[in-house]
């Protein structure tokens, strides 16, 4: 186990670890909630740019991920990602989406700082989730 792993990374991985049938829906839900918070700060264009960059960076590992989702309609924001994840086995979908989310938050954290990034995640996914995750990693 990587003891130097960022709490944020651990949190993302633990949130992605769902039962096989819930993995994709859960992943899209987390994206939707994160998108609301991030878009409020950097706008839709900023979010799109970040997201596309993240997909580009993880694509060498997961070539089946498309170059970028069609973000023009917010209703269909993650429809494409959902289709691609559904096309994979649960382990692969979990691994790819964790990597994508980690990459996305890594880039954003490099721009705004880790502390602010965590505050955004708390706002998006709830304080309790974050606190639980930190507690679990302390006890681990």
């Amino acid at each position: 186990m990587n003891t130097n792993e960022l709490p944020r990374h651990k949190l993302i991985k633990s949130l992605m670890a769902q039962e096989a049938e819930a993995i994709v829906d859960n992943a899209i839900d987390l994206w939707e909630r994160l998108a609301i918070q991030v878009t409020a700060i950097i706008g839709k264009n900023g979010f799109t740019s970040l997201y596309e960059r993240s997909v580009f960076l993880v694509q060498p590992t997961f070539p089946w991920l498309a170059p970028g989702p069609q973000l023009s309609k917010s209703d269909h924001r993650f429809e494409e990602l959902k289709t691609y994840l559904e096309g994979q086995n649960p382990a692969q979908a979990h691994e790819a989406n964790s990597q994508l989310m980690i990459t996305f938050t890594d880039i954003l954290a490099s721009l705004i700082g880790e502390q602010l990034m965590i505050r955004i995640l708390r706002a998006a996914w709830g304080d309790s989730v974050w606190d639980n995750s930190v507690e679990v990693s302390k006890n681990a």
Partner: peptide
């Protein structure tokens, strides 16, 4: 502010590219 942030993010990502 949102637009300014978006532009900054986009500009930074373009710089990375």
């Amino acid at each position: 502010l949102q637009e300014a942030n978006a532009n900054l993010v986009i500009a930074t990502i373009e710089a990375h590219k």
